[in-house]
Amino acid sequence: METSPAPNPTANQAPAAPTLDPRRLLILRTVAQEGSISAGARALGWTQPAVSQHLQALERSARTPLVLRHAGGVTLTEAGRAAVAHADAVAAHLDAAAREISELAALAGGTVRLAAFPSALAALVPSVLARLAARTGVDVRLVEAEPPEAVELVRSGDVDVALTFGYADPDETDRASGRPATPSADLPPDLREVALGLDPVDVVLPAGHPAADAPALTLADLAEDDWVAGCVRCREHLVASAAAAGFAPRIRHETDDYVVVQAIVAQGLAVSVLPRTALGAYRHPGVVTRAVPGLDGRSLHALHRPGAERVPAVAALLAALPPGTASDG
């Protein structure tokens, strides 16, 4: 009994599409523009045999003739005309890429994503954006985030740079000066840091508070007052500073909004502490601010992934954040 041959699953399949070298497509394009292989070779700065070899290799890959050679030069076949049309598109994309990269390198363009906490967005970031706009064409996209969230945004690649802050332990002192140690922002070791200076923290009192004009105000003088506390880090700093001064603050209100903090204080309902960046962004007319001993400032930092500082747009942003400006408030 005769048996029919087993079917060949690939017998009716179309042959695989050829793989074309884009560099050779561009060579074909030049030859077509110049009208001959010798003229194309001169335009490319190559020898005629080298150009011929590349064209022959391209035709082998295409599995069909692309040019017809004759005494007057070359004529494109139908397949050759299709190949040159695609080569034109390749050349246009490469030209656009070169121009875009050139603009980015020259800071005529580019985007950098910046995360920052609210008071930095209000008091520090606007001047940074103004400096960048005056010097470069960099486009900055802003995201509001407290330090822990901002750090994760940098790690995940959702932002390029994060502005963060941190407080020192009030019990830690610098051995050389006897003064409080420079605040630590608990900087993550996998990220790079640019120090932006110290942001002093002041006591905020109602204008009519008995201690508003005290000649030598201390934190302990406010032990009997009610307090408004801010974010988790700010509240921890207040509690630690008060403990170092010998009391536990009676925290009656909690809000991250420094405008609300001052509104509550202005009504005589509580006292508080705020960094000068926040006070620089908004100052309620009904409050008085005082610097007191034992109330350390916070350190400000810009964080980014290793190597990001070599990206021109990121480097421009970091350069617009000059160290030391945070303590000018």
Results as ranks from 00 to 15, higher is better:
residue 2 E to P: 15
residue 6 A to G: 15
residue 14 A to F: 10
residue 16 A to N: 06
residue 17 A to P: 15
residue 18 P to D: 04
residue 25 L to S: 10
residue 32 A to G: 03
residue 37 I to G: 13
residue 38 S to P: 08
residue 42 R to N: 11
residue 44 L to D: 02
residue 45 G to V: 04
residue 46 W to V: 01
residue 46 W to G: 02
residue 50 A to C: 01
residue 51 V to D: 07
residue 59 E to V: 03
residue 59 E to D: 09
residue 69 R to W: 10
residue 69 R to G: 03
residue 72 G to L: 02
residue 77 T to D: 03
residue 85 A to N: 03
residue 93 H to M: 12
residue 98 A to C: 00
residue 101 I to C: 00
residue 107 L to K: 10
residue 113 R to I: 01
residue 114 L to P: 08
residue 117 F to V: 00
residue 119 S to A: 14
residue 127 S to Y: 06
residue 131 R to N: 05
residue 139 D to R: 15
residue 143 V to F: 12
residue 144 E to K: 07
residue 146 E to D: 13
residue 147 P to H: 05
residue 150 A to I: 10
residue 151 V to G: 09
residue 151 V to Y: 06
residue 151 V to R: 13
residue 153 L to D: 08
residue 154 V to T: 09
residue 154 V to L: 04
residue 157 G to E: 11
residue 157 G to L: 04
residue 162 A to D: 06
residue 164 T to E: 07
residue 170 P to F: 03
residue 170 P to V: 09
residue 170 P to S: 01
residue 172 E to C: 02
residue 172 E to K: 12
residue 175 R to I: 01
residue 183 P to D: 05
residue 186 D to T: 09
residue 187 L to V: 14
residue 192 R to K: 12
residue 192 R to A: 13
residue 195 A to S: 07
residue 195 A to L: 05
residue 199 D to A: 06
residue 200 P to Y: 03
residue 201 V to Y: 00
residue 204 V to F: 09
residue 205 L to H: 08
residue 207 A to I: 12
residue 211 A to F: 14
residue 212 A to D: 02
residue 214 A to L: 13
residue 215 P to E: 10
residue 221 D to N: 14
residue 233 R to T: 09
residue 234 C to F: 04
residue 234 C to E: 15
residue 235 R to C: 01
residue 236 E to D: 15
residue 238 L to E: 12
residue 243 A to V: 01
residue 244 A to P: 00
residue 245 A to H: 08
residue 246 G to I: 08
residue 249 P to M: 06
residue 251 I to Q: 00
residue 251 I to D: 03
residue 254 E to W: 09
residue 256 D to T: 11
residue 258 Y to D: 06
residue 260 V to I: 11
residue 260 V to Q: 15
residue 261 V to A: 03
residue 262 Q to F: 08
residue 263 A to G: 14
residue 266 A to E: 11
residue 266 A to T: 09
residue 275 P to K: 03
residue 278 A to D: 06
residue 282 Y to M: 03
residue 282 Y to T: 06
residue 283 R to A: 15
residue 286 G to N: 07
residue 287 V to N: 01
residue 291 A to R: 14
residue 293 P to N: 06
residue 293 P to G: 03
residue 296 D to R: 08
residue 297 G to A: 01
residue 299 S to L: 05
residue 300 L to P: 00
residue 301 H to V: 02
residue 302 A to Q: 08
residue 302 A to F: 12
residue 304 H to G: 02
residue 309 E to W: 02
residue 328 D to Y: 13
residue 328 D to T: 15
residue 329 G to C: 00
